[in-house]
């Protein structure tokens, strides 16, 4: 019997596959969508990819693109530093929800406010995956985690962070902001392409949150995991584009 290797994006580094995420993890799907987006835009030789600490760190050698892994929450400033010094590069910051909305929230907010011309991709898996499933800013109400063993009580710990909504609120019209999901990889790829195109066009900050799975820490089987991603998460986190700049030629000067 021969096994047929799944089709991989051209920009993936085959030498480092199969990748190291847990079975059923959404990170791989987000990175597949990203790989295809890079391929279709033909930017592989111009991308500088930065990854956070969190399960995103497992992507440090994932692509055939120049990559730098940094500290928990600090991917946004590292990638900002690269972009400011080398505006001709396409700079991507890849992080988790803990990295982007908790420890690195000030960086995300200020990069967005300053309209840094980078593309930030944030994987929302409702918990801190790498450290063993603690509460994240995105943990849903009543959801059990290692640090909310009786379920997240919004009275105690507030409501889940609405990241793209926040970024959309603090950016101007030249930003691109969307929330996609691994339950619809085609759509997610479309969002990522637009987010990268927005950087290529030199417009401004681009941000895509991807709803993603963490079956290991959710302690869910495949069916439950998929139901959680497809049904439960979008009830709270609405899928769609929150901000999409008009194409350059469509912009009207006033």
């Amino acid at each position: 019997m021969t096994t047929i290797a799944p089709k991989m994006p051209k920009s993936w580094r085959t030498e480092t596959k199969p990748h190291k995420f847990c079975p059923g993890c959404g990170h791989g799907l987000v990175l597949k969508a990203l790989g295809e987006a890079i391929d279709e835009l033909g930017i592989q030789d111009r991308v500088v990819f930065g990854c956070d600490i969190g399960c995103s760190l497992l992507s440090w050698d994932f692509f055939n693109v120049d990559s730098v892994q940094t500290h928990h929450g600090r991917t946004t400033p590292v990638v900002t530093g690269v972009k400011r010094a080398r505006p001709d590069r396409i700079c991507i910051a890849y992080m988790g929800d803990g990295g982007g909305y908790a420890i690195g929230a000030q960086h995300l907010v200020n990069a967005a406010s300053r309209n840094e011309k980078i593309t930030a991709i944030l994987v929302n898996n409702c918990n801190y995956g790498m450290t063993g499933g603690q509460m994240a800013p995105t943990t849903l109400p009543q959801m059990k985690t290692e640090t909310t063993p009786y379920g997240r009580d919004p009275e105690e710990t507030g409501y889940p962070t609405q990241g793209p909504e926040m970024v959309a609120a603090i950016t101007r019209e030249n930003a691109y902001v969307a929330r996609g999901t691994i339950a619809n990889v085609r759509q997610l790829k479309g969002y990522l392409k637009k987010a990268l195109q927005n950087q290529i066009d030199g417009n401004g900050f681009s941000f895509v949150e991807a709803l993603s799975s963490c079956p290991t820490n959710w302690s869910m089987n495949a069916k439950e995991t998929w139901a959680f991603v497809e049904k439960t998460m979008p009830e709270y986190f609405k899928i769609g584009e929150l901000k999409a700049p008009a194409k350059k030629e469509e912009k009207i000067d006033v």
Binding site: V48, G50, V68, T70, H71, R74, T76, P77, V78, V79, T80, G81, V82, K83, R84, A85, R86, R89, Q106, H107, N110
Partner: peptide, 12 residues
């Protein structure tokens, strides 16, 4: 951020 952006600039 100033420290990490400096790292980014140097990496470039």
């Amino acid at each position: 951020s100033a420290g990490f952006t400096t790292c980014g600039g140097v990496l470039s």
